[in-house]
Design a binder for these strands. Sequence first.
DNA 1: GGAAGGTTTGCATACGTATGCAATTTAACC
DNA 2: GGTTAAATTGCATACGTATGCAAACCTTCC
Lengths: 354, 354
Amino acid sequence: MSENMERGRRPVTAHDVARLAGVSQSAVSRTFTKGASVSPDTRRKVEEAAASLGYRPNLVARSLITRRSNLIGVAIPGMANPFYARVLESLSAAFEQLGYRILLFSMANNEDSDPVLEEILRYQVDGLVLVSASLSSRFAEECRTIGLPVVLFNRTNGSTSVSSVTSDNITGSRTIARFLLAGGHERLAFVAGKQSSSTNRDREAGFNAYLQEQGRPLPLREVGDYTFDGAITATRRLLAQDAPPDAIFCANDLMALAAINVCHELRMQPGRDVSIVGFDDLPQGQWPIFGLTTFEQPLAEMIGRAVNIICAQLADPGTSAIQEIVPGRMIVRQTARLPASGIVEVDGERIWQP
Amino acid sequence: MSENMERGRRPVTAHDVARLAGVSQSAVSRTFTKGASVSPDTRRKVEEAAASLGYRPNLVARSLITRRSNLIGVAIPGMANPFYARVLESLSAAFEQLGYRILLFSMANNEDSDPVLEEILRYQVDGLVLVSASLSSRFAEECRTIGLPVVLFNRTNGSTSVSSVTSDNITGSRTIARFLLAGGHERLAFVAGKQSSSTNRDREAGFNAYLQEQGRPLPLREVGDYTFDGAITATRRLLAQDAPPDAIFCANDLMALAAINVCHELRMQPGRDVSIVGFDDLPQGQWPIFGLTTFEQPLAEMIGRAVNIICAQLADPGTSAIQEIVPGRMIVRQTARLPASGIVEVDGERIWQP
DNA sequence: GGAAGGTTTGCATACGTATGCAATTTAACC
DNA sequence: GGTTAAATTGCATACGTATGCAAACCTTCC
């Protein structure tokens, strides 16, 4: 109780505890290792000694032995988009539940991610979640070699050799196209996200595919880069045209909120003067002032799948890669004119089911 | 190039590289340790061998020796409040610049933080940033004993023995009170944040103190708990009164945005029918649809100070604790009626300087 | 060419814990 | 009480790297 009070003292180790408790270091280790064999008597002695010295097991040393760090590396783009903030929070909560901690890596905007990954791997993380980032085939191979579970979140890779979890972007955007046509819109526009992202590719493809199937022309198109400011500019351009669109599908909610802001500037009312639809279902979109009509990305479900994939691979490194595509729902609020039919209410949300 | 290709192979170690390169393990270590003494020749040999084997230094083993993990523990509340998302992102960016990584700990809503800290310390983090969390004196003492740099961010502790960085909440809220009175408001209201937080205490104290000094009655008061939903309820109650307030000071921006949403519901226009003021200066407040008048928390500056405190203590554990209070500015936009004078424009922002 | 000084290298050990193994103690049972 | 099985314990070693130390090497200068 007294000798550990000086500043900068050498940290208390299992040996110190063992000495004080009159047992071996192994005994100390075993009392702190769940499932090990210790008699109630020694356990008590050890725990008392540990408490009196303020002993705390050194997880770094433990990791070196067990080859498990209990860390999950998470690479995530900036948190300017609230969607990513939610992803991180949910991931953190889910993994903490399982006894894992999050080692955070911010990916400065979609630069090459390889150097960052190189760094991550040195930390001996037990698993890796790449949010909206891609994985070079070299690293995919590398991770498989060392048996490191990896999952791409909200992004797919070309190859099927790496696991991924996405929402059903194609069906979602097809549904949006169908919803807008059913609502009697004539002149559609699409505000694209980052051109390099798989989500944008899929959302644009699904949207355009449905329009073409219905013999409609392709939508007007601007690029908002998945950012608020980008979408402000894009929407202004769209609405300043001689023949402006009567409906705008923004490839994510953040951009849709920007579009609503532009409407506000122009004294236009979303849902009456022009329809705005997003993709994500952010909490902000539910705010009364926005009331955003959007296609849901079921975050909780997606997180659950991602965690399961990691756990499965952790339990058996031989588990093969899997591409999960989680279906979502069309959430109807006030920013888009409604179709004549198909609106149902499901646990507090209005859903469109064609 | 060939033997590391099988799945689940034992990871490549410095010994393997040494053997292939025909040097000692020490030489390998030294080539990967910046500032160590290696001849160009052996360095080349080692680097070639390392590349061909795909060697990656094991930072866990290194940490065990050097007693530095290059990890900074960050404990942060949920990210429903965008302010925290920004804090995390900025912290991460700042520390990555210095070669540190963030180990993330979500604090489920203000439960006792001690068990979480207990856990953090086992990971041998080099520093600790507690965002809006307090530190029991027991742990403060503990951290000092083991020489672990700690800084409270956006919260102060009672004691001066632990470092903290906050914005100037008292001056800020005094300024808001003065601003509202100068704008001719008669009937003020305050929407409080979490009662247990030091920021809320200070903001309420400063606001009330100025009113009292001016011989004004205390404001109406509701509690919003720093949450959007809480502030929705609080604002509705305030505005439903027989004699509703003509100005509402919400203790943070998130609640102010909620208040604006309530105004929208009630067909009231903020800045004309009622004034709304926040505290934070979130990016969302700058959105055209909100145009929130607020008192700034200068995030970049605050992050810089926090990082500096950690670094100073890292360099010299004897460095004494310091309480940093960073001044902010009153940012004037559209949600509050303006005083007759004192508005100036500073790099694109309109500031009120009484 | 040789001495002095600097640079590079390998050996051995340490970091703090987990764990296989053998020895010992305890429990169980007839 | 004696035998067998089970539970507990300590010893010794391993994890992968960094580093003090002394030996080996190279450079420089007279």
